[in-house]
Lab assay of single mutants.
Amino acid sequence: NKEHILAQKEVLTPIEYEHYVKHLFDIGEITKELYIELSS
């Protein structure tokens, strides 16, 4: 869920976080809207 993803932002580097969010989007775990929101 969104809270879990945002928690990852605390422990990952910005680049790792971007890759993580992109991966979730690629596998269909999150919607495009959520992907855009989380990567901003």
Rank of each mutant, 00 (worst) to 15 (best):
T31Q: 04
T31E: 08
T13C: 03
Y20D: 00
V21R: 01
S40Y: 13
H19A: 13
T13M: 05
K2R: 12
I30Y: 00
Y17A: 01
I15H: 14
S39W: 10
T31H: 05
H19R: 14
Q8W: 09
Y17L: 02
I5K: 01
Y20M: 07
K32V: 13
E37K: 06
H23L: 08
K22L: 11
E10Y: 11
S39P: 00
H19V: 15
Q8T: 08
P14V: 06
S39D: 05
E16A: 11
E37D: 13
H4R: 08
L24M: 08
Y35G: 00
E29K: 10
K2A: 08
E16N: 06
E16M: 05
K9R: 11
L24I: 04
T13F: 05
E3W: 11
L38W: 03
I27Q: 15
N1W: 15
H4K: 11
K22E: 10
L34W: 09
Y35S: 02
E3I: 12
L34P: 01
I5L: 06
H4E: 03
A7Y: 06
H23Q: 10
I15W: 13
L6A: 06
K2L: 12
D26A: 15
K2Y: 10
E10R: 08
E33P: 06
I27N: 14
T31S: 06
S40P: 04
S39G: 03
V21E: 00
S40M: 14
K32M: 14
I36G: 11
K32F: 14
D26T: 12
S39N: 15
F25I: 02
I30G: 00
H4M: 15
T13E: 09
P14D: 10
Q8H: 04
D26C: 15
K9D: 01
F25V: 02
L24D: 00
V11E: 09
L34R: 03
I36K: 11
K9Q: 08
L24E: 01
E18H: 13
K9F: 07
S39M: 10
L38K: 00
E16Q: 12
E29A: 15
I5R: 01
L6C: 02
P14H: 07
E33I: 06
E18K: 14
D26V: 12
A7E: 11
N1C: 10
K2P: 09
A7M: 09
D26I: 13
Y20S: 01
K32Q: 09
I5H: 06
V11Y: 13
K22P: 00
E37P: 01
K22M: 11
I27R: 14
K22F: 15
V21L: 12
Y17D: 00
G28W: 03
G28Y: 04
Y17T: 00
V11S: 08
A7Q: 10
K22N: 10
L12H: 03
F25R: 03
V11A: 14
E37C: 05
V11P: 02
P14E: 12
L12T: 03
V21P: 00
Y35R: 02
P14I: 14
S39V: 06
V11D: 06
V21W: 02
K2W: 12
H19K: 14
L34Q: 09
E16Y: 03
I27F: 06
L24T: 01
E37R: 05
D26W: 14
V11L: 06
H19E: 08
E37T: 09
